[in-house]
C-alpha cells in the first residue's frame, strides 16, 4: 500500500472539524505508513489532539499566515507538506478550504486529483476510490496509476476517528512563499440573510421542508408564518439542519408565500446540495427523481405527508406518516419543550 499523507487544517477556533477526523478514520483504514500534515495558526495544538492516531510523522505549516483560508498560503503550505512527506497518496477532507487549493497543488506536484470521493479503500494492493457521477445517479470505483494522487473525501462517508489526544512531535516544514504572494486579506465570514443559521453540516438530523408548507391548508388559507415559526422552533430545539425542496425554493420567484428562513443555499436535490446526515425527516415534500436525490446520502429516513404516494416517501423513506405536518411538528415542539423543562427541573 502507498504511503499516505493526510492533510488537515484547523478551524477558526484552532480545533479540527469532524470531517477532518472522518478523513483520518479513512486514512487509517488503508493500512500502510501514515503521515499527518497540519496547516493552521497553531498546528502543534491540533497535532496533540490527533497524537494517539498512530501516525508515523506529524508535519506542520504553522503560523499566523496560515490561520485563515487563502489560496496563495494554503497552496504553498500543502505543496511543502506533500513534498516533505514524500507520500504517494494524499488524502484530505473535502472542506471548502482544501477544495479551493488542492487541484492547483496537484498540478504543482505533477500528480492527479480526484474530488468528491465517498470511499477510499485498498484494491489490488493499491488505493481505490469511489465517487458519484451524473449528479449522484451512479457510483464508480476507480484506480489511478499516477502518483502523487490527491483525493478529497466528502463528509459523512466514514466514521470519525475518536481516539484520545497524546503528545505528538510536530516537524515544522518551511514554506516557500514568493515575495508579494499575499495579496488577499480574509475579513471573516458572513451569514446569509436569514433570521438565523439553519445549515448545519454536522447535524445528526436533516429536516427537509417542501412546498406543501406554503400551500392552502384544510381551512382554505395559507399559513407560511406559522410554518416558519414551527420549523425554526424545531430547528432550535433539535439543532437539525434545514434543507428545502427545489419547488419550495422556486416559489420565492413566483410571488407566493415563502419561508423567509429558506434561501437557495438550503436547497437539496439534483440542482442543490446532497448533504450527508445520519437521519432525515422530510415534511410536505412532493416530486419524484431527480429532486429526491437530496435524500441519497441520508441514513435513516422518515417522512410526514398527507399524500401516501409521495415520491419523497414511498420507496425512499423507511417510515411514512400520513398526517398533517403542522399538527405533528406542533406536538413535537411541545414535547421537546416539556422535555427541556423537565431537564431543568
Amino acid at each position: 500500500m502507498d504511503d499516505t499523507l493526510l492533510l488537515v487544517h484547523t478551524e477558526a477556533d484552532g480545533s479540527l472539524a469532524k470531517i477532518a477526523r472522518e478523513a483520518l478514520g479513512a486514512a487509517r483504514s488503508l493500512g500502510g505508513s501514515l503521515t499527518i500534515g497540519l496547516v493552521g495558526g497553531d498546528a502543534q495544538a491540533a497535532a496533540g489532539s490527533l497524537g494517539g492516531c498512530g501516525a508515523a510523522r506529524f508535519l506542520g505549516a504553522s503560523g499566523e499566515m496560515f490561520r485563515q483560508p487563502r489560496y496563495a498560503t494554503d497552496a504553498a503550505a500543502a505543496e511543502a507538506l506533500c513534498r516533505a512527506s514524500g507520500a504517494q497518496l494524499i488524502l484530505a477532507p473535502a472542506t471548502s478550504r482544501w477544495a479551493r487549493v488542492l487541484p492547483g497543488v496537484a498540478l504543482r506536484l505533477g500528480g492527479r486529483v480526484d474530488t468528491h470521493a465517498t470511499r477510499v479503500f485498498p484494491s489490488e494492493g493499491a488505493p481505490a476510490i469511489a465517487r458519484w457521477y451524473y449528479r449522484q445517479r451512479m457510483e464508480a470505483v476507480l484506480l489511478r496509476p499516477q502518483r502523487p494522487w490527491i483525493v478529497l473525501l466528502e463528509a459523512g462517508c466514514h466514521p470519525a476517528w475518536t481516539g484520545a489526544p497524546a503528545s505528538a512531535a510536530l516537524e515544522n516544514v518551511p514554506v516557500d512563499l514568493p515575495e508579494g504572494a499575499i495579496r488577499t486579506t480574509v475579513n471573516g465570514l458572513r451569514a446569509p440573510q436569514a433570521e438565523e443559521q439553519t445549515i448545519r453540516p454536522e447535524a445528526d438530523l436533516l429536516f427537509v421542508a417542501g412546498a406543501g408548507w406554503t400551500k392552502k391548508q384544510s381551512d382554505g388559507a395559507t399559513h407560511a408564518d406559522d410554518a416558519e415559526r414551527l420549523i425554526l422552533e424545531f430547528l432550535r430545539r433539535t439543532q437539525a439542519s434545514l434543507g428545502g425542496s427545489k419547488s419550495l425554493v422556486d416559489l420565492s420567484g413566483e410571488g407566493q408565500a415563502v419561508l423567509r428562513c429558506m434561501t437557495h443555499l438550503n436547497q437539496v436535490g439534483q440542482t442543490g446540495a446532497t448533504p450527508r446526515h445520519p437521519k432525515g425527516l422530510s415534511t410536505c415534500c412532493h416530486g419524484e427523481e431527480p429532486h429526491v436525490v437530496g435524500w441519497r446520502f441520508i441514513g435513516e429516513r422518515r417522512a410526514v405527508n398527507l399524500d401516501p404516494n409521495c415520491g419523497w416517501a414511498r420507496g425512499k423513506a423507511d417510515v411514512l406518516y400520513i398526517a398533517d405536518a403542522f399538527e405533528v411538528l406542533r406536538r413535537i415542539n411541545a414535547l421537546l419543550g416539556e422535555k427541556t423543562q423537565a431537564t431543568r427541573a
Partner: peptide, 14 residues
C-alpha cells in the same frame, strides 16, 4: 465565496 454552513467567506484581493 461559499463555505460550509451556508456562509460566505469575505476576502479582499488587492
Amino acid at each position: 465565496e461559499r463555505v460550509e454552513g451556508g456562509k460566505h467567506q469575505v476576502s479582499v484581493c488587492a
